[in-house]
Amino acid sequence: MVATTDKPVRKKTSAVATTKRKSDRWQSPLTLVALRIVVIAVVLALWQLLSGPVLPEYAVSKPTDVAQALVKLLGSESGWIDVRATLIEVVAGFSMGVTLGTVVGLVLGSFSLAGRVLEPLVAAFNGIPKIALAPLFLLFFGIGPWSKITIAMIGPAFVTFYNIYLGLRLRERELMEIVQVMGGRRHHLLTYVTIPTLAAPFFAALKTGGPLAILGVIGAEFIASTEGIGHGLFTSAMNLDAAATFAGLIVLIVMTLTLNGLLTWLDKLALKRLGLIARRRPAEQHA
């Protein structure tokens, strides 16, 4: 009787294992990359076929025309001037925003009275649409790069501030008390409690703030600028040049993916140095 009941169980276990192996095969990095390439190729083929007969070519252009416009953009001196201007503004605004948000978050998170007084004011200022501040910054800093840098700074600053501020408030008080009871001083609390607690929220803020910085720069370049990718996009749209517009969008996508890849690498490196990468893997596998 026992042998009879064991056979279905073994067959079920074997079937589950086989299904899991097939699922793991589909989840492999090479398979995922291949599937993404297939999806992109299908979208480009449909775009090429439908542009003209179904979709208005003046509005969506064609992948072949976009490729030619991209080669023209990257092959011209003016195109690289626009790319360099936007890149400098994004990097400067992002760096300054992260620095400002970190400092303010640490100060208000460390001093509870200051946090209770100023945090509602920060929230009120954060409620203002960032692009609505562009004309004000243009009055202060002019049409040059500093008006774009300040707008790019706002988004990462608020995201970093809230992640640091809330991270400090959510520190495990029991763990802090244990460290203090064991004779730990401020630098021990910083090393063993504060930094490990803030590492994940901080790098999450970086990944969120990067696209916000790019969005701020492009929006400001749309409003008033003499160079930059946003300026090129605006000019192409006004000239009804869909191919050049899509070429500028591709440059922005590459810029965003590069920034996100760099921040992801820094995230993994920092968490590995802090010994926190082992905590993240089970959560990612569970997800």
Score class of each variant (00 low, 15 high):
Ser51Trp: 02
Leu55Gly: 06
Gln27Glu: 09
Leu30Gln: 12
Val42Arg: 10
Gln48Cys: 14
Leu35Cys: 09
Ser23Val: 06
Leu35Asp: 05
Leu50Phe: 06
Val42Lys: 08
Val43Ile: 15
Lys11Tyr: 06
Ser14Asp: 15
Ser28Thr: 13
Leu70Asn: 01
Ala59Trp: 15
Lys62Asp: 14
Lys22Thr: 12
Leu46Thr: 05
Ala45Asp: 05
Leu46Ile: 09
Trp47Gly: 05
Pro63Asp: 01
Lys11Pro: 00
Leu35Lys: 12
Pro53Tyr: 10
Lys20Phe: 14
Val16Lys: 15
Gln68Glu: 11
Ser61Cys: 04
Asp24Asn: 10
Val39Gly: 00
Thr64Cys: 12
Ile40Thr: 11
Ala17Val: 01
Thr18Arg: 13
Ser23Pro: 02
Leu70Ile: 11
Lys62Asn: 15
Pro56Ala: 05
Ala34Met: 09
Glu57Pro: 00
Val60Asn: 02
Leu46Pro: 01
Ser23Thr: 06
Ile40Leu: 14
Leu46Lys: 03
Thr13Cys: 00
Val16Asp: 09
Pro63Gln: 01
Ser61Lys: 07
Ala67Tyr: 02
Val54His: 09
Gly52Ile: 00
Trp26Ser: 11
Val71Tyr: 01
Val33Ser: 08
Thr13Trp: 04
Ala67Thr: 02
Gly52Arg: 06
Thr18Ala: 11
Leu49Phe: 10
Leu30Lys: 12
Glu57Gln: 05
Ser61Asn: 07
Arg25Ala: 15
Arg36Tyr: 04
Leu32Asp: 00
Leu30Cys: 03
Ala41Leu: 08
Ser51Ile: 02
Thr64Gly: 10
Val54Trp: 12
Lys22Cys: 11
Pro56Val: 03
Lys62Cys: 03
Leu32Val: 15
Val43Ala: 14
Leu30Tyr: 11
Val71Ser: 02
Asp65His: 06
Leu49Gly: 02
Ala45Pro: 03
Arg25Thr: 11
Lys72Ser: 09
Lys62Val: 14
Gln48Pro: 08
Leu35Val: 13
Val43Cys: 13
Trp26Phe: 13
Leu44Val: 11
Ser23Asp: 13
Leu46Trp: 08
Lys20Asn: 10
Val60Pro: 08
Lys72Ala: 10
Ser14Trp: 14
Glu57Tyr: 01
Val54Asn: 07
Val38Leu: 13
Ala17Phe: 00
Gly52Val: 01
Pro63Asn: 01
Val60Cys: 15
Arg36Val: 00
Trp47Ser: 07
Val16Thr: 07
Pro29Leu: 11
Pro53Phe: 14
Thr18Met: 06
Val16Gly: 05
Lys20Asp: 12
Lys20Ala: 14
Lys12Gln: 05
Val42Tyr: 05
Pro56Trp: 04
Leu55Asp: 06
Arg25Cys: 11
Leu50Met: 09
Val16Asn: 09
Asp65Ser: 06
Arg36Thr: 04
Ala15Phe: 08
Val66Thr: 13
Trp47Phe: 07
Ser61Leu: 04
Val66Leu: 03
Leu55Lys: 05
Val39Tyr: 06
Val54Ala: 08
Thr31Glu: 06
Val33Glu: 04
Ala45Tyr: 15
Ala41Glu: 07
Ile40Trp: 13
Lys72Pro: 00
Val71Asp: 00
Thr13Tyr: 03
Pro53Met: 14
